[in-house]
């Protein structure tokens, strides 16, 4: 489905980014996976095989993005950008400092903004005056539509990324290019990020969130990876500005 395509996946060293990288590679893409977590990157490399290249990358640093694009566009075009890297700071508002709030926005919103802006410039330059083609996929969250008492910083930062997805979809289309921008809004999925938000061991948590979900279960990392592969591929060539809800029905019912 993705033979001959080249993709950048941020946050590729664990959780959703790792699964996305492995699936995109399995569908035939060459994947440049970026992360600050080098041990995780080695694990992803072992799972994804030869089509995976790991780069050290902090999405809040412009010079890191430059290095990623330097590698991705070295031999022509890069077709897919998955803005997956994100953090979940579940501090409630009385204890949350402005610095903490800014940190969530820096990673979840400003990083993807900076990366997407530079990616679009590179894609257009590589197209050399021809209509540019690319698929950009932002990993947002069910928190865009549904809120929870601990979503003070996480929710707004993801909601803004969801809105950026729509704004860019409209703007990109109107420039005569064929750059599609979509999002995936995952519901609760067990990953190092979701495990890390609570010191209570996973098995001992109350899992009350599941009561809100019609399918009454957590999602699998691969559910997100398959949606990403679909949005990255030509199968979704008439889709832009849409957010695929992968949340067991939580946001729609």
């Amino acid at each position: 489905m993705l033979e001959g395509k080249k993709a950048i996946v941020t946050g590729a060293g664990s959780g959703l980014g790792q699964s996305i990288s492995v699936r995109l590679a399995a569908y035939g893409a060459t994947v440049i996976g970026t992360d600050v977590n080098e041990d995780g990157q080695a694990e992803t490399k072992a799972l994804a095989g030869g089509a995976f290249e790991a780069l050290h990358h902090d999405v809040t640093k412009t010079q890191d993005w430059d290095a990623v694009f330097g590698a991705a566009f070295q031999e022509g075009i890069c077709d897919i950008l998955v803005n997956n890297a994100g953090i979940a700071d579940m501090t409630t508002i009385p204890d949350m400092s402005l610095e903490q709030f800014r940190k969530s926005c820096a990673v979840n919103l400003l990083g993807p903004f900076a990366g997407t802006k530079a990616f679009i410039e590179r894609v257009r330059a590589a197209a050399g005056g021809q209509p540019a083609q690319a698929s950009i996929i932002n990993i947002t969250s069910v928190a865009v539509k549904k809120t929870f008492p601990i979503y003070t910083a996480y929710g707004p930062s993801k909601a803004a990324l969801g809105n950026l997805t729509k704004a860019l979809a409209v703007e990109m289309g109107r420039k005569g290019d064929f750059i599609r921008v979509n999002a995936i809004a995952p519901g609760p999925i067990r990953t190092p990020m979701t495990e890390g938000v609570d010191p209570t061991p996973w098995e001992e948590r109350d899992h009350r969130m599941l009561q809100l979900i019609p399918l009454k279960r957590y999602g699998e990392k691969n559910d997100i990876a398959e949606a990403a592969a679909f949005l990255a591929s030509e199968r979704s060539k008439f889709m832009t500005g849409y957010t695929v809800p992968v949340d067991g029905g939580w946001s729609d019912i």
């Binding site: 695929v244 992968v246 729609d252 019912i253």
Partner: peptide
């Protein structure tokens, strides 16, 4: 591939 998508 869409096993966790319903009601959308």
């Amino acid at each position: 591939a869409s096993g966790y998508i319903t009601g959308s």
